[in-house]
Nucleic acid binder design. Structure first.
Lengths: 150, 150
DNA sequence: CTAACCCCTGGACCATGGTCCAGAGTCAAG
DNA sequence: CTTGACTCTGGACCATGGTCCAGGGGTTAG
């Protein structure tokens, strides 16, 4: 049965009875990864068929895609779990969800600032490096090897 | 994050017989980390005293600082091992070091762009979220794929 | 009914980058 | 000489993010 590809043009229409393998193909992750995410609390424990097989709904595919995208962007699974937790926190409500999203935003902005600082430093070093000549004159090596000046 | 500037003027004289503990304190890394780096080939096997104690020269301290700073710039230990090899390669050293620094810079800039994209999306969601009312109307939750069926 | 799949669990294993520990030897001060 | 701080080794352990395997059972087409 060569259903390797989801049509992609048509609406996924979330069929509500998928096996773990079908979910894995649709979300483009490994089967073991799905079970791992379940263990780690990134996916809720799925309902089971009489056989013990996991019985997923199409929303799981969405959730896995979200996880994959977030992971590609450098979020840790812990961070992703937190992002996902925003969507199941009926107790504390929208207000808390918004507050936590803002906290996450602040974290992202902090990380951006750090990386920008690194980028500035690296850019300067590269600009100052002639790309040839004696090692002693390479500003990159000198910066890395220099004394601490805290 | 490490400083980028090079003093280059002072060479506060590396004492040439340091124990691993003295090196660790000077380089601000753990003793175990030094032994780990030696095992991993980031430090050459140190000479030993008659007792078996490692006997470091002050250059090791500089090398460790180099490693720490490169790590701060996002180089992996594997990449750092290569950088260290280049830094003692008179033929290709400077040119390759510059190239690798440029590659690292490109990686950092890529990550910055990704995070900025995330930030934009998250900002929009936060702006659109009223901060109260039913969860179903929260744009943040809707964007994340919403419901949890447990 | 029998293949050929699929799925289940628990646990081992991988890389990365360390950190810690036990048991034994070394070194310097008092 | 004793004490306490230091060092040695090999190996266990940690977190992260999976991946694979054995030994079972489920399911489906021919």
């Amino acid at each position: 049965m060569g259903r390797m590809d989801t049509p992609a043009t048509t609406r996924p229409t979330a069929p509500s009875h998928l096996t773990i393998g079908e979910v894995a193909r649709r979300a483009r992750v490994g089967i073991d990864t799905i079970r791992y995410y379940e263990r780690e609390g990134l996916l809720p424990p799925s309902p089971r068929r009489a056989s013990g097989y996991r019985d997923f709904g199409g929303d799981t595919v969405e959730r896995l895609r979200f996880i994959r995208r977030a992971k590609d962007l450098g979020f840790s699974l812990g961070e992703i779990r937190e992002l996902l937790a925003l969507s199941s926190d009926r107790e504390r409500g929208v207000r808390d969800v918004k507050r936590r999203a803002q906290a996450r935003l602040a974290g992202i902005e902090e990380r951006i600032r750090e990386l920008q600082s690194v980028r500035r430093g690296l850019k300067q070093l590269i600009a100052a490096c002639p790309g040839h000549g004696p090692l002693e004159h390479c500003p990159i090596l000198r910066a890395l090897g220099g004394e601490d000046r805290a």
